[in-house]
């Protein structure tokens, strides 16, 4: 499956997803509550040191931040202008640390393990009517629908091209919507006719 997982055998890879996400949530909250630059800097260094420990390279850490460099630059300039250099470094460092930490969880956890954790984790919601098996079905259906939708759009575009309409958003989107809604109805009939009762 297409995901952002980076294979490895470190303790972070072996840790089960639930405690990892819990630690992430607590750490992120603490990071947002603290307002000292020194603590933020220490947190940033600590997160960076976790990368080699998780058998990830600093290059991978850099790749997590690179798409956000523009945002950081804009924030830094804005904060510098509004509140001074120290506040600017604090805000940007805090965001960078948060993103590196969250990416660490994503990089060391397979999406399939995460899905399993979510479906078992949802067990405690059963009394209020959440059925984990149905959540699992929705997740797998959604993942299967993404390439199907791309394919249907491609088909409709080609059909409309012969009419010279491939640039009209509505002329493409309307048939795609009608076809996929029909498909959704057929699929739910097919599931029901096979006696699906989770």
């Amino acid at each position: 499956m297409l995901d952002l997982y980076s294979p490895g055998k470190s303790f972070l890879h072996k840790m089960s997803p639930a405690p990892k996400m819990l630690v992430l949530m607590v750490a992120a909250t603490l990071l947002f509550l603290n307002d000292s630059l020194a603590v933020t800097l220490a947190a940033m260094v600590a997160v960076l040191l976790l990368y080699p420990l998780a058998q990830l390279s600093f290059k991978q850490a850099w790749q997590q931040l690179r798409p956000l460099l523009w945002i950081f630059a804009v924030f830094f300039a804005l904060q510098w202008w509004l509140a001074g250099l120290e506040q600017a470094s604090y805000v940007v460092l805090r965001l960078a640390a948060l993103i590196l930490l969250a990416s660490l969880v994503t990089l060391t956890t397979r999406s399939s393990d995460m899905i399993d954790t979510i479906t078992t984790g949802l067990g405690f919601l059963k009394p209020i009517g959440v059925n984990p098996a149905k959540v699992g079905l929705a997740i797998s259906l959604a993942l299967r629908f993404i390439p199907v939708l791309a394919q249907v759009t491609q088909d409709v575009r080609e059909a409309q091209k012969t009419r010279g309409l491939e640039r009209s958003v509505i002329a493409v989107a309307m048939p795609v919507a009608i076809r996929t809604l029909k498909m959704a109805d057929d699929i739910s009939d097919a599931i029901e006719s096979r006696g699906y009762r989770p």
Binding site: I146, T180, D185
Partner: peptide, 19 residues
């Protein structure tokens, strides 16, 4: 929740992803 709702939920999550 009925099967049709589950399929619709999956479909619109996938639509947002496909966009």
């Amino acid at each position: 929740m009925d099967t049709k709702s589950i399929v619709y939920i999956a479909l619109f999550a996938a639509l947002t992803a496909a966009l």
